[in-house]
Computed example of a mutant assay.
Amino acid sequence: LDVYITSWKNPDASMREVRFDDYLVEGISAIVRVARECSGAERVHAVGYCIGGTALATWMAWAARHYGEDAVPVRDWTLFTTLVDFHKPGDIEVFIDEESVAHLSEQMKEKGYLDGKDMAASFRLLRSNSLIWHYVVHGWLYGESPAPFDVLYWNMDTTRMPAAMHAWYLRELYLNNRLVQPDALVVAGEPIDLRRIRQPLYVVAAEDDHIAPWAQTFHTVHHVAADKRFVLSSSGHILGIVNPPVTPPRRHYRVATAHRADRAPLWRERAALREGSWWEDWMAWLKPRAGELVAARPAADERHPALGDAPGTYVLEA
């Protein structure tokens, strides 16, 4: 499988007016176009993680209007720990109200962006026992050096958000929950209705996710009419996804098809419990949709030359 991964650029004050619309048109649309050009494929298999998944779901509804429901250049799509229904967004709800959003929006206007450290601090407060007090006790009280932990290091690698984009995101999605209201949002010139999406969907949630609670991510199946397969992985927001097959298995998952009439607790009761990594189930679902095998080819070509060695230049920006 050719894999094209696009990372967020860490915005600074010069990007204060970049909007959610821009992320869809200049981001996701460009990603799909370039992946098609590089691979020669007519349609791609799209994947979105967390807010990237929310953006992908919005783009899929946008593309259903823009191209036509059966002409979207995406064969199927996958969401990792993604919210589209923000009615009960989890523990983060304690920070989301009209006054808080208004205050945060004013702060972002001054800086031009939301500082990633502020967002990280909010999420640490949601799990203060494990993410704050554990390190106070063992580091400050006991004088122990923390053991190296690559996932925690990744978790601390914060990303900023442009002021215009994030203010819109908080107000329209978290406060007003308009993404699941048919045609309530107009994004990049198109009314957004998730019910128009026809491409098969694979959804992965995590049991212990405090950022995107699995029962709330399950509501995605109620708003998308396409065929859906839902997976509930063990662990949390990161480890539930970064979950390679290993021997012996470290984790487990539940999996079953999902229907618009399903409810999360009943789905969980009938879903098959499997040991190991859901990646294997995903490949079994994805590969038959990927067509015939072709010879491997270089990632870069004359039309899309390499800009630099991995991991690129964005990761070096402060």
Rank of each mutant, 00 (worst) to 15 (best):
D115E: 14
H237C: 01
F149V: 03
L201Y: 08
L79H: 00
D118P: 00
S100R: 13
V137N: 12
R75T: 12
K111R: 15
F80V: 06
V231Q: 05
G27N: 07
E93N: 07
L114Y: 05
V34Q: 10
R195G: 15
H252C: 10
R303V: 03
D309W: 04
V231S: 05
V221T: 13
A225K: 14
R75F: 01
G68A: 11
L273H: 14
V224G: 01
R270T: 08
K117F: 04
T158M: 09
Q181G: 00
H237I: 03
T159K: 10
I28M: 11
M60L: 15
M60H: 05
A46Q: 04
H138F: 07
A64P: 04
V187Y: 06
A63T: 07
L173D: 09
R65I: 04
R303N: 12
W77T: 10
Q181D: 06
W59F: 11
A306E: 09
C50P: 00
G112P: 05
R254Q: 13
A264V: 03
P73L: 03
E190T: 06
V187A: 03
N129T: 05
R274L: 13
M165Y: 04
E98F: 02
L126C: 00
K111W: 13
A41Q: 13
H45K: 05
G189I: 08
